[in-house]
Design a protein around this nucleic acid. Structure first.
Length: 314
RNA sequence: GGCACCAUAGCCAAGUGGUAAGGCAGAAGUCUGCAAAACUUUUAUGCCCCAGUUCAAAUCUGGGUGGUGCCU
């Protein structure tokens, strides 16, 4: 079967992915599919640095603003919806550009990870609650030992303190009858339907990126991020969206618990740490063609990226 | 000017004679259904400087430098 060619723009937050992707979309007559776990949600426009109408230049964007904030979302649902978006775009005869910062979402999509039928339902919730209770009663070592008895391979790869993942591995087994290791193996047998070309944006000098992040946070403040946070604090949402950087750091100020300077500093720091984790994730992908934002002007980055894409396609 | 207290990593700090706790920041990494999450590993040949006592000093003594507080 003919593979679907896609262009994937990756990189840490504040590296300039949005700007580059829109320029490339114009050049290649493409539509954009985001792989960002937070831009998915409605609202939070400033905190998640969504492209504005004006920035989009009329280029259709998918997988942005498509989930209610209270909703629980997951990689599996992302993959399903993104696949559909890609099919639609290809059906129109246009090209696909993937842009974002959530490495897990991108890899799950491109590597065609098969998620076993273990969707949120009563059975799952029941199993999860039982495991939770058991964890509190008997401790992380016990749960890890339990997993080792069922799925030694998964247990070996998980640290006992990583209770979230240990419990999930157990949950998968109890609800589907298959181990999570089986799921991984099974996924590797199914070939990816995509032929991706990767462009990565990063800085040669880490401090350069960090300076950009600090500046961006200051701009978010000017743009009124505090209003967004205020709205969010009032909602008291329990969904994934509340994990968004910006909301949880600024909330103590809105609630009058801490001063603004402290909260803003923490927001900058958390954003820097996030960028570092993103780089760790992307670095292991050897297919990424890295471009350095502290060595080229935005225009040069665009022409370089076009050159790389045309070369890889030839 | 006098008196008192303090000086340990980028920051906060424990350590009162036996070979530098811990936390934060930083760095590296793991990742298959909450991932902007969760988790792991790592960081001072040296304790302001000089001299002394001792087998042994961040720890004791003397001097110096710097800081903080009080008094004049």
């Amino acid at each position: 079967m003919e593979k679907i060619p896609v262009i994937a723009i990756v990189g840490p937050t504040a590296s300039g992915k949005t700007g580059l992707s829109i320029k490339l979309a114009q050049h290649f007559d493409a539509e954009i599919v985001s792989f960002d776990s937070m831009q998915l949600y409605k609202g939070m426009d400033i905190a998640t640095a969504k492209p504005t109408e004006q920035e989009m230049q009329g280029i259709p964007h998918h997988m942005i603003d498509c989930v209610e904030r209270g909703e629980v979302f997951s990689v599996a649902r992302y993959k399903e919806a993104a696949e559909k978006a890609i099919r639609d775009i290809v059906g129109k005869g246009k090209r696909v550009i993937l842009v974002g910062g959530t490495g897990l979402y991108l890899d799950s999509l491109l590597n065609n990870i098969e998620f076993l039928d273990s969707e949120d339902n009563d059975k799952n919730r029941e199993v999860r609650e039982k495991l939770q209770a058991e964890l509190i009663e008997k401790g992380p070592e016990f749960m890890h030992g339990k997993l080792a008895g069922i799925d030694p391979k998964a247990a070996e790869n998980l640290h006992p303190n990583n209770t979230g993942r240990v419990l999930r591995a157990l949950e998968v087994f109890y609800t589907t009858g298959h181990t999570i290791s089986y799921q991984v193996e099974h996924s590797k047998d199914t070939p990816s339907p995509y032929a991706p070309i990767f462009i990565g944006l990063t800085a040669r000098d880490r401090q350069y990126l960090y300076d950009r992040i600090n500046l961006r946070v200051d701009l978010m403040l000017q743009d009124g991020i505090l209003n967004e946070v205020e709205e969010f604090v009032a909602e008291e949402s329990k969904s994934t969206a509340r994990q968004a950087i910006g909301l949880k750091e600024l909330a103590p100020y809105i609630r009058g618990e801490e001063d603004l300077v402290t909260c803003v500093e923490r927001l900058k720091q958390e954003t820097r740490r996030y960028a570092k984790r993103q780089l760790t994730w992307f670095r292991r992908n050897e297919k990424i063609n890295w471009l350095f934002i502290d060595e080229m002007s935005p225009e040069e980055l665009v022409t370089e990226a076009i050159k790389i894409i045309e070369r890889e396609e030839a």
